[in-house]
Structures are given as structure tokens and as C-alpha cells.
Design a binder for these strands. Structure first.
Lengths: 186, 186
DNA sequence: GCGAATTCTTACCATTTGGTAAGTAAGTTG
DNA sequence: CAACTTACTTACCAAATGGTAAGAATTCGC
């Protein structure tokens, strides 16, 4: 499962053959097809798993104590941490969203509760005056895009002249945080 | 060429078969292989073309008259316009960056002049005090990511609750502009 | 008008793909 | 021990893939 998640998000769904997955696991392709009736079913299982993990990762940050800017900062930090430490999770979201169709629909359903929670949380903070008023969906989308770009578009990072090493990730996180802070401050 | 660019960026390189491209063009696969020795060569040609178009699109915005914030705003507007009206250009950048390897290297070479121009332009504006000091590479990366996300991740847009219609694109552009403005203001 | 280049097509081909069918070794249950 | 389930494997298969070889129609240079 972890292998499939990793490969789907890194190499893409179409570019990942069942044979390649099986080889990596040291079994035959039919061993996979025994547990998952088809490649599509495997993808659906991987989507469910990734969404579950994603929600688990964010659950703490969204429900932990603290208020105002501290909590916002913790949320963004969490987003960045997930993007750096588990890039396959966000990478799969991107890949599945590109695939469209049933897979994307399933992703949508799986993430709906989290998205609703996050946007309503942003909304509350806006009403409270912690962050400046804007479309909460837009804010979520921007945070996702920013982290996705910085955490998974390694090649683009290299193109714009940033070395995509883990060592410099901390620096990038600090930059992104101050950037988002400036953008969100009331 | 346009058909290949579109399909590579929308469906992905691996998921685009030469037969499918040929069918869409009303010719046979071998007609394509006559002009481009292999699928890889076709990809390289498409990359060159996309980068050329990208640079052409941005050239006006980067070199046009005006100064200070007006020019910055025009640059961001251009980025958004390209993202919305020619999503295949930025989509291909994302796809090729995911593919890695020779293709990504070529992309890097093709875009290097533009990237250097853009970052040095940001640097000048920072020195002039128009925008707040930050890593110019980071700023470029963030703008790219934001526009990529909003312009090409249609499914994710739907998931976070934004209808991905052209009609609402203007609203999103305004939101993004005010967002970037807030983030960049000195 | 004729050879030659250009631009295709038809006919193949080896490999890879997701998927099926059937068998088998190792438990598990009664 | 026997029936049955679990977790595979080996043996295939039809379709699709990128690519080659050779031929045909059209255009071009002279």
C-alpha cells in the first residue's frame, strides 16, 4: 500500500505498472490483483488511505488548544511539515485531481469533511479579526498550492534557483511562513 | 504540435499515446513519427515550443513601460492571464518537472533566461523599496505555484468549494491579486 | 517530362499492459 | 484426517504501446 501510494504520487498512476509495483515488493503482479480486484480498485484504496492519513496529520493542528495567530501558524507549519515529510500524500492529491473521473470524485468525498472544517475555521478567525477578510476557500487553495509547489515540484525549485535539499527546507519554510503571515495579517 | 502540447499537459506524457494524438489529428501515428523521430523527440520539441510561447507571453509584461507597483501588478496579471487562457503552457511545466530526467533538464535550460530576468527584476523592485524584501526565487516560486494551482488544479478547486468556471475566474484573479499585494507590500 | 525529395500510408513487430484461469502450498476448522 | 479458506504462483491472453520497413502519392527542381 505504501509502495503504491509512493509510486502513484511520484511517477503517476498511468506510469506505474502493476508489474513494477510487484517487483518492488518481491511478489508477482497477481499477488496484488488478489488483494485488489483491479488497478482502479487499488487506486481507490490508496486514495482512501492517503486521505485518512492526511486528515489524521491535520487533526491535531486543527483541534489543538491555543487561539488566534498561534494556531494559524501551527496550521501552516503542519501543512509544511506534511508537505516535506510526507510529500506523497499531497502529491497523490495532485495526481488524482489531474486524473479526474471517479478517482477525483472519491477524493472529493474523502476530503470534504476536512475541507469544510478548515474553511469554517478560517472563517471564524476572519470574523474574530485575527486574519484579514478574504475568501476562505481561496486561502486554503493558496496554502495548498504553495506547499504543493515547494514540497513536490523539486524540478521547478531547481529551475528557479533553489536547491531542493532537506537542509534548505527549513529556510524555505521560514520564508513561506513570513510570506503567508504578511498576506494574512489583518 | 498544439495538440501534443495540450494532451501532454492535460492527460500527461505517459498517458498520451501517439495513436491517440494521430487519431485526433486525422492522420496515422507514423505521420507523427516521420516529423519527430521518437516520442521523446516530440516531447522535446513541445517543451521548446511551450517555453518559447511562455517567454513571448511574459516578455511584454516584463519589458513594458511603467514602474513600481503598476508593473508588478501587470506582471501578476499576465501570469494569471496565461494560466487561465493558456493553461497548457504552465501545465506542461508541471508535467515535465514531474517527469524529471532529460526533459526537465531541457525545460530548465529553456526557461533559465526568463527566470533570471524575472528574479533580477524582483530584486530591483525590492531594492527600490516597491515590495518588501524577501527571497526573489521564493516569490517567483510562490506566484508560479499559486497560479498553477488555481489555473490547472480544477478538481482541487472543486474540492475546496470553488466552481472552476471561466466566469468565476475573474473573481479568483482579483482575490489572488489582493492576496499577493498584501504579501508583497513593503 | 522525369528523377528525386517530401509526406505520408499500410503492414508488421517486440514489448508491455491490465487482467483471467487454474493450480498449489500453508494454515484453519470440525 | 478431510473440507475449506487464505495467499499466493505459473501460465496465458488480448489489447495497446513505441517503433521499423517498405511502398505510394504528391510536389519540386531542372
Amino acid at each position: 500500500m505504501a509502495v503504491a501510494l509512493d509510486s502513484f504520487s511520484r511517477r503517476g498512476f498511468d506510469a506505474t505498472s502493476l508489474d513494477a509495483l510487484a517487483a518492488e515488493l518481491g511478489v508477482t503482479k497477481q499477488a496484488i490483483l488478489y488483494h485488489y480486484a483491479s488497478k482502479k480498485v487499488l487506486l481507490e484504496a490508496v486514495i482512501d488511505r492517503a486521505c485518512f492519513d492526511l486528515i489524521i496529520e491535520f487533526d491535531g493542528a486543527l483541534s489543538s488548544a491555543g487561539s488566534g495567530w498561534d494556531r494559524i501558524e501551527r496550521l501552516v507549519r503542519t501543512m509544511f511539515r506534511v508537505g516535506v515529510r510526507r510529500p506523497e500524500l499531497m502529491g497523490l492529491v495532485r495526481e488524482v485531481s489531474r486524473l479526474g473521473g471517479d478517482a477525483a470524485a472519491r477524493l472529493s468525498v474523502d476530503l470534504q469533511p476536512f475541507v469544510e472544517r478548515a474553511t469554517s475555521y478560517f472563517q471564524r478567525e476572519m470574523d474574530a479579526g485575527t486574519i484579514r477578510k478574504c475568501d476562505p476557500s481561496m486561502l486554503l487553495m493558496l496554502s495548498y498550492s504553495a506547499v504543493i509547489g515547494i514540497a513536490t515540484d523539486m524540478e521547478v525549485l531547481r529551475i528557479v534557483g533553489m536547491e531542493p535539499t532537506l537542509r534548505s527546507a527549513a529556510i524555505r519554510r521560514r520564508e513561506l511562513l513570513s510570506f503567508l503571515k504578511a498576506a494574512m495579517s489583518a
